[in-house]
Structure formats: structure tokens, C-alpha cells
């Protein structure tokens, strides 16, 4: 079994002595450098989004959201009358149904799903590196499918938020959570939407990999494409880990 393979010995010279290793790290390919350069720009892209979110959130007035009035209502003339049961917040609190419509339980499960896809991806690459083509194809296909499930859950969540559920007045004046109802909604849809677009791109690339892998395109000597798409996929997972915390939990 390939899993039980022993650590490869250093090559020896014609005289039987140990040859000097020629490579100190995994092979450096143009594709790999390109994807890391691209990921460096992506770091700055998502930092820009998250940084802007933090500024907008920090700049939100203490009366920006309340349980009795729609978001961004000017409460200057309302507060002195001290309406019964009025609670105001600078930003919707997690788990507060009166101002925050996000389903954290569902998204926590979706986060777990995306982490699973990262694992299948790395196991797929590992299988190709060991020349286990069938196993690699199975893992790659599983990654594409699990990624599609993540996207499906996100589409379901968007549909529930925008069209299906009717939320309290503190969430939206119209009852639906659409990007135009509040700053919170705009930020939420911008950040998760851009991330979702990245996942969609990843699923397409992963599907192409999966199809090619069933035709034996990748092996221990040819896995560069799998590694490149894998790096992108893991980065998308990494970004989601941060977004889930910043947007949903805090």
C-alpha cells in the first residue's frame, strides 16, 4: 500500500556516496508563484472589505438600530419621550431577533461544510502525490460537490433573508432583509457576496479538475494544477473563517 511507503533515500552517486540534494523545498513552478501573487492581492482585497466594515460599524451611532423603529430612523425626537420597551443599539447584536436576522446556527454548519471541503481537497492532492489516481479523483469530486453544497446553503440563506421571511421592524421597514434596508445589510451582502463569488469560481475550477482527474490527467509527476486550485480553495476557506467571526459572531 502506498500509504505505508518508506521515506525515500537520498540518491547515491556512481561511487556509492550520498549525492547532494539539489532541491531544498517543493518544486517552484511559474503557476505556483502566480497563484501566490494573486492570493497576495486577494489578502489586500478582503482586508479592504473587512477594514471598511469595521470603520462603518464603529461609526454607527448608538441609536442606529432599535427594536421598535426601522434601521437609521432619526430617534432625536423619540428618545426624550422614553417609549416603553425601546432598546437601541449601534449595530445589530448576534442572536437578537429584533434587529439581527442572520441564522448563526445554519452558517456555523456551513462553515463546517467548507472546512470539510478543504480537507478533501488536501487529501486529494496528497493522493495524487502518492500516485493514487482513483482516490485523488474521488476526493477532488467530493471537494467540488461539498463546495456546491456550501454555495447552495448560501443561496438558501439569501432567499430566506430577502424574500421568504418577514422580519420585525427593527430589521427592516419592509419586513425583508435586502441590501438596501440598512448599512448592516449592505455590509453583509457585500462581504458574503464577494466571498460567495470566489467560492463559485472555485467550484467551477474544481469541477474541471474533477472531470480531468477521472481521465487520469494527474499523477505523482503531474499535480501542479491540483496544487494551484487547492491553494485558491484553501484561501477561500481561510477568508470565510475570518468573515464568519467578524460578520456573524461579533
Amino acid at each position: 500500500m502506498a500509504d505505508a511507503a518508506t521515506f525515500p533515500a537520498h540518491p547515491t552517486t556512481a561511487h556509492g556516496s550520498m549525492a547532494r540534494p539539489t532541491v531544498q523545498a517543493p518544486p517552484l513552478t511559474p503557476g505556483k508563484v502566480a497563484i501566490w501573487l494573486f492570493l497576495a492581492t486577494e489578502i489586500m482585497f478582503f482586508t479592504g472589505l473587512i477594514g471598511t466594515y469595521i470603520v462603518l460599524r464603529a461609526g454607527s451611532p448608538p441609536t442606529g438600530y432599535s427594536n421598535l423603529y426601522p434601521p437609521a430612523t432619526d430617534l432625536t425626537y423619540v428618545l426624550p419621550t422614553k417609549p416603553e420597551g425601546l432598546k437601541t443599539y449601534a449595530w445589530p447584536k448576534p442572536y437578537d431577533d429584533s434587529t439581527n436576522p442572520l441564522s448563526i446556527d445554519l452558517t456555523a454548519v456551513n462553515t463546517f461544510i467548507l472546512i470539510c471541503s478543504s480537507v478533501t481537497m488536501v487529501l486529494g492532492l496528497s493522493a495524487f502525490q502518492r500516485d493514487q489516481k482513483r482516490k485523488g479523483a474521488l476526493y477532488t469530486t467530493a471537494t467540488a460537490l461539498i463546495g456546491a453544497v456550501f454555495l447552495g446553503v448560501q443561496v438558501f440563506e439569501y432567499r430566506q433573508l430577502m424574500f421568504v421571511h418577514h422580519y420585525p421592524i427593527g430589521v427592516s421597514a419592509s419586513g425583508h432583509f435586502t441590501p438596501d434596508v440598512s448599512l448592516f445589510a449592505s455590509c453583509f451582502f457585500t462581504m458574503t457576496g464577494f466571498h460567495g463569488a470566489h467560492v463559485a469560481g472555485g467550484v467551477i475550477a474544481m469541477s474541471l479538475l474533477a472531470i480531468r482527474s477521472w481521465f487520469g490527467a494527474y499523477s505523482s509527476t503531474n499535480y501542479n494544477s491540483v496544487e494551484i486550485v487547492g491553494l485558491y480553495w484553501h484561501f477561500v476557506d481561510l477568508v470565510w473563517i475570518i468573515l464568519f467571526t467578524v460578520v456573524y459572531l461579533i
Binding site: P21, V23, P26, F112, I115, C116, V119, S126, Q129, S220
Partner: peptide
């Protein structure tokens, strides 16, 4: 890791403790 050939690096990479990392990620989530 230094002094490893490309083949050895590939061996190390493909035998990394991915499942342990997965369970750690699950617990942290």
C-alpha cells in the same frame, strides 16, 4: 525542511497529519 530532495519533500507533504488538523479545526469551530 532542509537537505531533502524534491521526492522526499513530496513524501513529507503527502504524509502531513491532515486529519488531525481537520479534527482540531472542528473542535475550534
Amino acid at each position: 525542511e532542509h537537505n531533502l530532495t524534491a521526492e522526499q519533500e513530496r513524501f513529507v507533504e503527502s504524509h502531513a497529519p491532515y486529519m488531525k488538523v481537520f479534527w482540531t479545526l472542528l473542535i475550534l469551530t
